[in-house]
C-alpha cells in the first residue's frame, strides 16, 4: 500500500466526520478493499473514532476488509437466477477456480462472490464480471468467459 495514494482522497473529502462513507468508497475503489492503515489514516483525518470506521466497514457488504483479486466475479443467486440454474454455475466456478464464495484465488486474479438479487431477473442467470453483466449464463459459457477475463488479466499484469 502506498500512503501517498491516499492523500488526494483525504484532501478532497476528508475533513468532516459525515464524509466517512464517501472516503471509504474511494478507498475501496482505489485498493479494491479497505486496508487497515488506510482506515486508520481516514479515522485520524476525519475525526471519526476508529471503532466507528471498523463498524461501517463490517456493516456494508460492498466493503471488504480482506484483499480482493484483480477481477470480481459476482454470481446472482436471487430467486429468478436460482431457479434458472445459478447454483450450478456457482458450483462450476467454485470447482474451476478452487475457491468458495468470498474467497480469492492464490494468484490474486479472481474473487468470487454471490449476491441476492441484481434486479435484472429477466437476464437470469446473471454473472457480473468487474461491473459488466453477462446474461443467460450456463456452464458451457463459463470457459469462454474465464478465458476473456484471463486474457485481459495478462494485459494488466504481463508477467503473471
Amino acid at each position: 500500500m502506498d500512503a501517498k495514494q491516499l492523500d488526494p482522497i483525504l484532501n478532497n473529502r476528508g475533513s468532516e466526520p459525515y464524509e466517512i462513507m464517501e472516503v471509504l468508497q474511494d478507498i475501496q475503489d482505489l485498493y479494491g478493499f479497505l486496508p487497515e492503515p488506510a482506515l486508520r489514516a481516514a479515522s485520524a483525518s476525519l475525526g471519526v473514532p476508529l471503532i466507528e470506521v471498523f463498524r461501517l466497514a463490517n456493516f456494508y457488504k460492498a466493503f471488504s476488509l480482506k484483499p480482493r483479486g484483480r477481477h470480481l466475479l459476482t454470481v446472482c443467486n436471487g430467486t429468478a437466477c436460482h431457479v434458472k440454474g445459478a447454483p450450478r454455475l456457482l458450483d462450476e466456478l467454485m470447482a474451476r477456480l478452487n475457491i468458495a464464495p468470498g474467497e480469492t484465488t492464490a494468484d490474486e486474479a479472481f474473487t468470487l462472490e454471490t449476491v441476492n438479487c441484481l434486479g435484472a431477473c429477466a437476464l437470469g442467470p446473471v454473472i457480473v464480471v468487474d461491473g459488466v453483466y453477462y446474461e443467460h449464463m450456463d456452464p458451457s459459457k463459463l470457459d469462454g468467459l474465464l478465458e476473456t477475463v484471463r486474457s485481459r488479466d495478462r494485459e494488466l499484469v504481463p508477467h503473471a
Binding site: 473514532p49 476508529l50 471503532i51 466507528e52 471498523f54 463498524r55 463490517n58 456493516f59
Partner: peptide
C-alpha cells in the same frame, strides 16, 4: 474511550 463496538450484522 470508544474502544469497543458492536460489529457486524
Amino acid at each position: 474511550s470508544k474502544s469497543l463496538g458492536l460489529v457486524g450484522r
